[in-house]
Nucleic acid binder design. Structure first.
Lengths: 233, 233
DNA sequence: GCATTCCATTGCGTATGCATTAAATGATGC
DNA sequence: GCATCATTTAATGCATACGCAATGGAATGC
């Protein structure tokens, strides 16, 4: 796949931003912001007026979001923001576990130098700081950054986009899970181990370490969800 | 209330089949049949007349297919059937490897009885027969069946749909790769080992065995592709 | 001959209108 | 009262229309 080669003018270039793109972006953020709550139904026309455009671009955005698992199209009842059950969380975490572990392995085998692993190291440090300050939001942000960067370093574009999709589905629930779960103090030890393994070029160690790290996280979250009988409705 | 409202004729079910559904199905099969060749460009209006419908449902189908990685929308040049490079194949196989291995593990831990594993066993036998007869098509079909069933038994719906997507991308290339690669005689030994591990409930063994099986297959295919300089254009 | 500008073409993005049909409501018979 | 059927309502699926902007080519200037 050849990337589009654009020398790009000195001027940043104005973005005409298409309506369907805007619909996509805005609907996504409304979903993440909880403005469109999980489990709620919305008519296409309703969303259209809300976004100040016709049904057509909304429909396209909705179709895309559906294929990404954030929405569900129900013929006469409007689009439904899919609610996540504990089982769904388990499924998603399983996928994330495997694909991120793969990425960790590939990253280790790619022989990145320290400079290229800077972002990863930074994310880990930021998590430490956040934990020390008891700042859960900052921790979540840095944790996200760590995982995103890890996957990017893995270099498999399909893994990147799948992980992105799955993370999106989980992201909405993060607000809830974040404050339920115990402070992830031990978590960063694992992150450091993974980083060290990558630096060492030890693919198996990176993979296995990250794998058990993720499995552990999954177990904790799913148990919490089941205990609290939460369904994210 | 939910009881049968209408005795309904002896005919099973009437299918009103929507246009966009039809567009989706027909475009897919045209792609797999090579009627829409990889790398070729097609205008929306062209496809619309071809399918005897307006641009709208075609557009919707195309959008969906794009999000599934089979198409690429290029503003003024029409939709392009995405060609796969050797690197793409490698990426896809990596994803398949990890997710199928996960499925194998989960299947083993699910304690299925022999009856429930019948389909899997059957697929393996069919592959043996196909190999003995030198019938590559039959082998490919049974192999597909094996992997599909394995993933189904894994029970993770997200894994199922991702694997399905990835398999689709690869399926188009199958015609080519099938006849290049050496007869997969050893392959079935691995399949049997996986099945045995599942019957035994040995998750780790199932996972590891399937994993190395898939990694092997990936290596062979990718090397072949690189050697032959094939790009599926 | 080469480059630059202008124009015609046309594919796409979006809006709009219409027909279909699923759901809801009311009517009718028992 | 309850259930079945008819009628109405309205959301969707699809067709169609239209303007814009990009592309290719012609025309003009050098």
């Amino acid at each position: 796949m050849q990337k589009d080669i654009k020398p790009e003018l000195s001027t940043p270039v104005e973005k005409p931003i298409s309506s369907s793109q805007r619909a996509l972006v805005e609907l996504r953020s409304k979903i993440f912001a909880g403005e469109l709550a999980a489990g709620s139904d919305h008519l296409e026309s309703e969303l259209a007026t809300q976004l100040n455009m016709s049904r057509t671009p909304v429909r396209e955005a909705v179709l895309t979001l559906e294929s990404q698992g954030l929405l569900e199209l129900r013929p006469r009842k409007g689009v439904r923001i899919v609610p996540l059950s504990a089982d769904d969380m388990a499924e998603i975490y399983e996928v994330l576990t495997e694909l991120e572990s793969l990425a960790a392995e590939r990253a280790a085998l790619a022989a990145y130098d320290d400079a290229e692993l800077q972002e990863l190291a930074q994310a880990i440090d930021d998590m430490d700081v956040a934990i020390a300050r008891d700042d859960l939001d900052a921790w979540a942000e840095a944790d996200d950054r760590f995982h995103t960067e890890l996957v990017r370093l893995g270099g498999n574009s399909r893994v990147i986009s799948i992980v992105h999709m799955m993370s999106d589905q989980v992201r909405r629930a993060r607000t809830t899970t974040l404050f339920m779960r115990p402070l992830p103090t031990k978590s960063n030890e694992d992150h450091r181990k993974v980083l060290q393994a990558i630096k060492r070029g030890d693919g198996d160690c990176a993979r296995i370490t990250h794998r058990s790290h993720r499995r552990e996280a999954k177990k904790i979250i799913v148990e919490l969800l089941q205990k609290h009988r939460l369904r994210f409705l």
